[in-house]
Design a protein around this nucleic acid. Structure first.
Length: 699
RNA sequence: GGCGAGGUAGCUCAGUUGGUUAGAGCACAGGAUUCAUAACCCUGAGGUCGGGAGUUCAAAUCUCCUCCUCGCUACCA
């Protein structure tokens, strides 16, 4: 299909923290390259982004910092926006989901689906904070983690041991708002029956996108579709978000993943009155740039929503990237293991293109990649400066030395094979870069540009105009050859500026200014031409495009990473005691609030493990037979990651004997083995130091 | 445990429908050169293509088994 317009979105960054270079490499940089290329092709393109400002993590952060959610999103929206601007990410609009337009748009979207009967209404029991008179989302519920005993685990996840939880699993759940214990109350929510769209999605993706979408994206989608889709709640009980536009729905807001993608539409509305052309006309090419963590929302849920609503185009492609690791380790915001964009801009002023270069050249297009500062230095110094920057500099210096600072003539009568080969290379490079960008292979496209500069270096070397001008007399004899060589080098430089422009816009602009040409010269259609610079046109003096990255800078950045990690780790330790000594105080307090009667309810006994075996199809579970003196009990315990079955047989352990039985993986567990856990996550049995009788009471 | 994506030179990656001595860049070694940011240019060394079995005249490429990494998911009382 011939597309009349292009609509490009980049994932809405979540406004509860700054952006790091992983975000840039995974999503925003490729999107920006793609869009700049489309603009250079003079195609009708709109580049949409904005802050995602709803959801529970923002309210949690607000509570921790003692400010309002609006304060939180205002702060980070500014930081994020500035980071993008600073790196030259050229959105046509950077909006935010807390804007009125978004409220209207997402409510209207919801209302349309509601009126069409697209939702299923369901009542369920959920935790309720009586003191604050609100239902609590999973994130608002705090309790003791059943795995690692962290007393501050959230209802959806324990940040200390990383396990996914549901609120029901928490021990002694309490409210994050009031710290009071919770009760369960019925509440109503609207579910979107994704299962009803399975056939449509299978046809559209599994059949239709097989050879078009990247294998990681396609595979992930197919996996979801094959395992069957479930209805998903599209509303939440919360005070922060877009209110559900229905009577009697007080205290209910749209689920962030319902409202966030609609944010793309709202932002387009803010940008232009013609927004409907971009979203509703069949000849629009919609492309979502995202990271791999967003695949399901952009490929499954949002398209199903759009389909249910009707009248919208569906994404033509969703080129999701994998993750970028830092110095061999996964990015972690809580451990502050990341290279933050705002800090890079401060530490490396005017070096946007150096980072853009490295992040694109090493983008995680097909698998997770590693960013190291050493690699950053190597690539900037040995590829960007040495090949590209150096060629451009050579061309300018030689032109000034041998051609009086003006573009020399191209004497057709004396052109040879080398000249023609170079011209062919320039034309070929245009096609190669074009194909690479159109198929979302940005690292390949950028490599082609560098390769063209490399060919320029070789051409210079082979012609060696400096040798042709060793003496004034020689130069006079050879001036025609020198002119041809320098003419082509300069035309090549102009071509490099065009081809480079989507990738390294700052550099392209610098080059353009030195050549004293108008911005229009960078139009893509001009690539491949060798008459971009007029003969006899005077150019500016040489000036380096890039500077080298020094060893000290690299060392300083690595040091900074380690320092940040250290500080963040310390902070975590202070907030959430993990070592035995730090845990003593809170433990004593906990005892004071529990009555003896409460304690006496727990029947703790000593037992001996007689048998142990791995539970089928469960990574973490061991099935234990424990001799309790009067009986042998079956207990299922989540310790398989820490102990081999054979090494714990005969071990005497402490058992909570009167815990209500519970089935796990089809096996009924009758009790719980007590374990101590170190800060490093290691498990240790809580056992009698001398052998006790099996079944003897622990008190 | 299920599913998905990867595993190719020291590093980062290409390898189209199976076909002659498996490619590129960086790093490394040697050479040449001086216009240039000690940069460029040339040459070289370096790989049992994660491991095993099979299909084939022929496998990095197809089939089966197995190991490792990342992600989603189940499981954790």
């Amino acid at each position: 299909m011939e597309f009349k317009r292009h609509l490009v979105t980049a994932a809405l960054p979540y406004a509860n923290g700054p952006v790091h270079i992983g975000h840039l490499a995974g999503c925003y940089l490729p999107a920006d390259i793609y869009v700049r290329y489309q603009r250079a092709q003079k195609r009708d393109v709109k580049f949409i982004c904005g802050s995602d400002e709803h959801g529970v993590p923002i309210t949690i952060r607000a509570m921790r910092e003692g400010v309002t959610p609006q304060d939180v999103v205002d702060k980070y929206n500014t930081i994020i926006k500035d980071s993008f601007e600073g790196m030259g990410i050229s959105f046509d609009i950077y909006s935010r989901t807390s804007n009125p337009t978004h409220k209207e748009t997402s409510q209207a979207f919801f209302k349309k689906l509601y009126d069409d009967g697209a939702f299923e209404e369901r009542e369920s029991e959920q935790y309720y904070d009586a003191e604050k008179d609100v239902f609590l989302a999973d994130r608002y519920i705090i309790g003791t983690c059943p795995n690692c005993a962290n007393p501050n685990a959230y209802g959806d996840q324990c940040e200390k041991c990383g396990s996914t939880l549901s609120p029901e699993q928490l021990i002694n759940p309490r409210s994050a708002l009031s710290n009071s214990p919770l009760v369960k109350k019925p509440t109503t929510h609207w579910y979107f029956p994704l299962n009803k769209y399975e056939d449509f999605l299978k046809e559209w993706i599994v059949v239709g996108k097989k050879d078009e979408w990247k294998s990681n994206v396609y595979g992930q989608c197919k996996s979801w579709l094959d395992s069957g889709l479930q209805p998903r709640a599209m509303t939440r009980d919360s005070s922060w978000g877009v209110p559900v536009p229905l009577p009697g729905a007080n205290g209910k807001v749209l689920y962030v993943w319902f409202d966030a993608p609609i944010g793309y539409i709202s932002a387009t509305k803010e940008l232009t009155n013609q927004w409907a052309d971009y979203w509703c006309q069949e000849d629009t090419k919609l492309v979502h740039f995202i990271g791999k963590d967003n695949i399901v929302f952009h490929c499954i849920i949002f398209p199903a929503m759009l389909k249910a609503h009707g009248g919208f185009v569906l994404p033509e492609n969703v080129p999701a990237n994998e993750f970028l690791n830092i110095e061999g380790e996964k990015v972690s915001t809580s451990r502050n293991w990341a290279v933050w964009v705002d800090e890079y801009l401060k530490d490396f002023p005017d070096q946007q293109d150096a980072l853009r270069y490295v992040l694109c050249a090493n983008a995680p297009e097909s698998k997770d990649n590693d960013f190291t500062w050493k690699d950053f230095q190597d690539r900037v110094n040995n590829e960007l400066s040495a090949v590209l920057g150096n060629f451009e500099n050579r061309a300018f210096v030689l032109m000034h030395k041998l051609c009086k600072g003006r573009v020399p003539a191209l004497h057709a009568d004396e052109m040879n094979e080398m000249d023609n080969a170079l011209i062919a290379d320039i034309k070929e490079a245009k096609t190669k870069v074009e194909n690479a960008i159109e198929s979302y292979k940005f690292r390949e496209g950028l490599a082609e540009v560098i390769d063209l500069a490399r060919k320029g270096n070789k051409y210079l070397q082979d012609n060696a105009p400096w040798s042709l001008a060793k003496t004034p007399k020689l130069q006079e004899q050879n001036q025609k050859r020198i002119d041809i060589c320098m003419h082509l080098c300069l035309q090549l430089t102009a071509n490099l500026a065009i081809l480079l422009n989507p990738f390294l816009p700052y550099t392209a602009t610098k080059m353009r200014k030195k050549m004293k040409v108008v911005e229009r010269m960078l139009d893509w259609e001009n690539a491949g031409r060798i008459d971009l610079l007029k003969v006899n046109y005077p150019l500016l003096a040489p000036e380096l495009l890039f500077r080298k990255i020094e060893d000290e800078e690299v060392a300083a950045q690595v040091e900074k990473l380690r320092e940040n990690l250290k500080k963040a780790t310390q902070q975590i330790m202070e907030n959430k005691p993990t070592t035995a000594s730090e845990a003593e105080t809170p433990l004593a307090e906990a005892k004071a609030t529990i009555t003896f009667d409460d304690f006496a309810k727990i029947d703790l006994r000593v037992g001996t493990i007689l048998k142990a075996e791995k539970v089928e199809k469960a990574d973490k579970l061991l099935k234990l037979e424990v001799d309790m003196g009067t009986e042998v009990r079956t207990i299922v315990s989540g310790i398989a990651m820490h102990f081999a079955p054979e090494e714990i047989i005969g071990k005497q352990v402490s058992v909570v004997a009167n815990l209500a039985p519970r089935k796990m993986r089809g096996i009924e567990s009758n009790g719980m083995i007590l374990m101590a856990q170190n800060a490093d996550g290691k498990l240790i049995f809580v056992s009698p130091t001398q052998t006790a009788d099996n079944g003897s009471e622990v008190k």
